[in-house]
């Protein structure tokens, strides 16, 4: 228990300090460049250019924190600093939990998700650096028609296999039977609103669907339609 507390305290401290330093670096690069080349923008200009983006991205950030922290735990710090959350880090972490056979929101789940996200972050950084080094020779191949088309379909390709693994998950020796039923009503609502009323924003849809899924899950759990089964060691 003591070891757990010490790890938790230390990993969160590193996450917080690491995040503050990352922010300082992100703002420090423009500040140094502007200082050296005498090109500091005025504050009113910055507010004018940035207000629209802030209005759009602050609510998105709130929804992402609420959605992803319960799944990623302390891996959230490095996930948010390195970006590509829904299309790379989250699938990577969930896949790792399945492979290591551990549950989310447990000590083991938290550590395994962090291993996966850290490895993924390092690999992405190396590949992007390689892309910079090989900018000229790689450009024709990576900007070809098939690669461009394939890139458009990355998200459905990613979530197809991920949904299957989550539906059949036995991670940590726990199976939630009938859990997909809780997503049916929210899913239908999103489809109807998107197709017949107005285009749905993905981030807002997730934020609305989580409490709705909880409500449906609670009703179905009380009705005995959703059950938690604890497997023995032999599965």
């Amino acid at each position: 228990m003591k070891q757990t507390d010490s790890y938790t305290r230390s990993v969160h401290r590193i996450g917080r300090v690491g995040s503050v330093l990352a922010i300082l670096w992100m703002l420090g690069i423009p500040a140094v460049m502007c200082g050296v080349y005498h090109m500091f923008p005025s504050v009113p200009d910055l507010l004018l250019f940035g207000s629209g983006l802030l209005a759009m991205y602050v609510p998105t950030a709130v929804s992402e924190v609420i959605t992803y922290v319960p799944m990623l735990g302390s891996a959230t710090y490095i996930t948010f600093i390195t970006g590509n959350i829904s299309n790379l880090k989250l699938p990577c972490a969930l896949n790792a939990l399945e492979m290591a056979d551990v549950e989310q929101n447990t000590d083991a789940g938290d550590a395994v998700a962090t291993v996966a996200v850290a490895v993924s972050s390092i690999v992405t950084t190396l590949i992007v650096a390689l892309g910079v080094l090989l900018l000229v020779p790689l450009r024709p191949a990576l900007e070809s028609e098939p690669v461009r088309i394939a890139g458009n379909y990355m998200l459905p390709a990613l979530y197809g296999c991920l949904f299957l693994s989550q539906m059949t998950s036995k991670a940590g020796g726990t199976v939630i039977k009938g859990k997909m039923k809780a997503a049916v009503l929210p899913g239908i609502l999103v489809f109807v609103i998107h197709v017949f009323l107005a285009p749905v924003n993905r981030g807002l849809a997730i934020l609305a669907c989580i409490p709705l899924c909880m409500l449906c899950a609670w009703v179905l759990y009380r009705m005995g339609q959703i059950k938690v089964v604890h497997l023995d060691k032999d599965g």
Partner: peptide, 25 residues
Amino acid sequence: DWGTIVNSCFFLGIVAAFTPLIFAS
């Protein structure tokens, strides 16, 4: 058990939001 189900609802929320949007695309 209810706590375990609540945990899974975060991913179910993504399923409920993404799948219809993918199929409608």
